[in-house]
Computed example of a mutant assay.
Amino acid sequence: MRSLFCVSTCALVVAGLCMAPAHAGGCSKLVGTADGWDRADALSGAQAALAGAVADFKKGKGAITVTAMRAKPQPYWRESVSADLFVKPDVVTAKSYTVCWHGVVSPVVCTSGAKVCW
């Protein structure tokens, strides 16, 4: 069961990555979403997914700046996340802002966000 969960987590992490232009000024918003058995597991997965997205984004762009950005949660099984489902506190670093919530299938899901400019 644990290996099945790991495989689905990896697939969901990849599916949770997205890139959307912030504006025409050379910046984009990146997010990474992951699920886990507990908050620490989901948090590290979301931050790793975001770091991977930033590394992919950086290819061919040269120097970039990365700053934390609160991203909209990217739930897998519901339309949105109600306030009572969030697992506090949010985790904010210089390069990411992560929110976590109780999932439908997974115990915890997290989304990390960053703004990258070049």
Rank of each mutant, 00 (worst) to 15 (best):
P89A: 06
K115L: 13
P73N: 04
S106P: 01
C18T: 09
D84Q: 14
S80L: 08
V99R: 00
W77L: 11
I64C: 10
K58D: 04
P73W: 06
A34D: 07
W101M: 05
L4K: 07
L17Y: 08
A22F: 11
D84L: 08
A42G: 00
K72W: 02
C117H: 13
S28V: 15
G103F: 03
G60I: 11
T9D: 06
G113D: 00
M19Q: 13
Y97E: 03
A53K: 02
C100F: 01
S44Y: 07
A40L: 07
T33H: 03
A15C: 08
H102K: 11
T111N: 01
D84Y: 13
M1V: 11
F57V: 04
G36T: 02
R78W: 04
H23C: 15
S8M: 12
D56P: 06
R78Q: 09
V7D: 05
T67E: 08
K61H: 10
L12P: 00
S80C: 07
M69N: 02
K59A: 12
D35V: 10
G25D: 14
V87T: 10
P73Y: 06
A94K: 14
G62V: 08
A51Q: 14
D84C: 05
V105F: 09
G26K: 13
A71F: 05
G52T: 14
A83W: 15
S82L: 15
V87E: 09
W37G: 07
A46N: 03
V54I: 15
L12N: 07
D35W: 02
Q47G: 10
W77N: 04
V99Q: 02
R78F: 07
C117R: 15
G32Q: 03
M19V: 15
W101L: 02
K58E: 09
D90S: 04
S106I: 00
S112Y: 01
C18Y: 07
A49T: 13
V91F: 06
C10I: 13
D56W: 12
S112W: 00
M1Y: 08
T33G: 01
A46E: 03
A15M: 13
G45Y: 11
T9R: 15
A15E: 08
A83S: 14
T33Y: 00
A48R: 14
T65P: 01
A34C: 11
D56K: 09
V108R: 09
C100T: 06
V116M: 04
K72R: 06
A68F: 02
Y76I: 15
S8P: 00
A22I: 09
A22M: 07
K95N: 10
V109W: 00
V87C: 04
V99L: 01
V54W: 04
W37Y: 03
G16I: 02
V87S: 04
K29V: 12
A40K: 09
R2G: 10
V81Y: 08
P21E: 13
M1A: 14
S8D: 02
G60C: 09
C10E: 10
Q74G: 03
A94S: 11
S106E: 07
F86Y: 15
M19H: 10
I64P: 08
G16K: 02
R2A: 09
F57T: 07
A63D: 09
I64T: 03
D90E: 11
V31G: 02
A48M: 14
G52S: 15
K115W: 13
